[in-house]
Computed example of a mutant assay.
Amino acid sequence: MIVMEIRELEAFLAVMSTGSITAAARLLDRSQSQVTRLIQDLEISVGFALLDRNGPKIAPSEKGIAFHAEAERFLSGIGHLRERARTIAEKEPQPIEIVAIPAFASGIIPLALAALPEKLLPRKIHLRSLPAEAAVQSVLARTADFCVTSLPADQPGLEVHGVFQGPCVAAVAEDDPLAACEVISIADLAGRNIITMANPFRLRRRVDIALEAANIRPARIIATSVSVNAVQIASTGLGVAIVEPATAYGLKLANVAVRALDVDIPFPWAIFSAAARPLSDSSRELIQEIIQIASACIPGFTAHDPRSANRAAEMTLGGDQADAR
């Protein structure tokens, strides 16, 4: 039976964050020997080394890196529980814990938070930006009240608050000749640098299918993990970014022109919470604000039947391609 103390996990996370026992001890206001002992006790509990030691130097072990994400999620949940208990005792609006893919965390959700009535704003709001798979897992682990994520998300235990879709767009530097076009033809991307997402199982797959269908061979592909990076690269004139509409229309960046494409590259997304877990009034109102702002910001915004979250994702690829994601 594995028995771990919260202070041991806190010591481990402090070491991972600061990179040394000495810095972690200062952060936690403990002695170096106390932090060292806490880490050693945690290693005994879990049954493997969390840190590789080479004299005074330490580095996280491979297993330590994998364990770090779980420890961070667990302590986040404990902090969430403590904060909920305090607000219940003091009859305050409950904190809001939001997890979203970067496309929404950087643009649409901040706008929705700003639109939330003052009386519904709790003293603590936590917005985390995570990949789609991790966002869904945070909801299932109940370390987040709800998540805004791209599809697919085929997981039991989720309550669907909305399934939506919008067409991807092109982002180019303002002085790029394509910026003069109201609609950019995908044929105009031949021989250009194309900036898009790295994950081959979500938006990137739809982009690749569209390029292949149009027989477009770019000069090079520049792949990144978040759309805002792609748009920022496009602003330098290095290439044309093909990105989802939440970033393109929700986040205003200088020196960038956002244009529609003459091909439909759909971006399906949804809002989920844990099934059978009641949401606060603040969370429910925030979800409605997110939907309203997205519908106002994104041209071609479409709402699907919430009961068909993954069917909406499958329709964007069709047939065998959907099964191959």
Rank of each mutant, 00 (worst) to 15 (best):
D52W: 06
F67L: 04
F48R: 08
Q32C: 01
Q32Y: 00
S31K: 06
G47W: 05
A49S: 14
K91Y: 05
F74L: 14
D41L: 04
R73F: 07
Q34D: 10
N54W: 05
E43T: 05
P56S: 11
Q40M: 14
V46N: 00
H80I: 11
D52R: 10
F48P: 05
E62K: 15
F67I: 01
G79N: 10
D41A: 03
G79R: 13
V35T: 07
I44Y: 06
N54G: 04
F67S: 01
S31I: 06
R82I: 11
S45H: 11
V46H: 08
I96A: 09
S33E: 02
I65G: 14
I39G: 00
L81V: 09
S33R: 07
H80V: 09
R53F: 02
I44H: 10
K63C: 07
E83I: 03
E83M: 11
I58L: 07
F67C: 01
L75D: 02
E70I: 14
I39R: 00
N54D: 13
T87H: 08
G77P: 09
K63Q: 14
R37H: 11
F74Q: 13
H80D: 12
K91Q: 12
F67V: 04
R86F: 08
P56W: 03
I65P: 15
A66N: 08
A59Q: 08
A49T: 12
P95Y: 03
A66K: 13
F67P: 04
G77C: 00
D41P: 04
A85P: 08
H80M: 14
R82N: 10
L81D: 14
R73L: 13
V46S: 05
A49L: 08
A49G: 06
A85L: 14
F48W: 06
I78S: 02
D52Q: 09
P95L: 02
A49Y: 06
S45F: 03
R84N: 11
I58P: 09
N54A: 12
I65A: 14
G47I: 08
F48Y: 10
G55Y: 08
G77K: 01
S76G: 14
A89C: 00
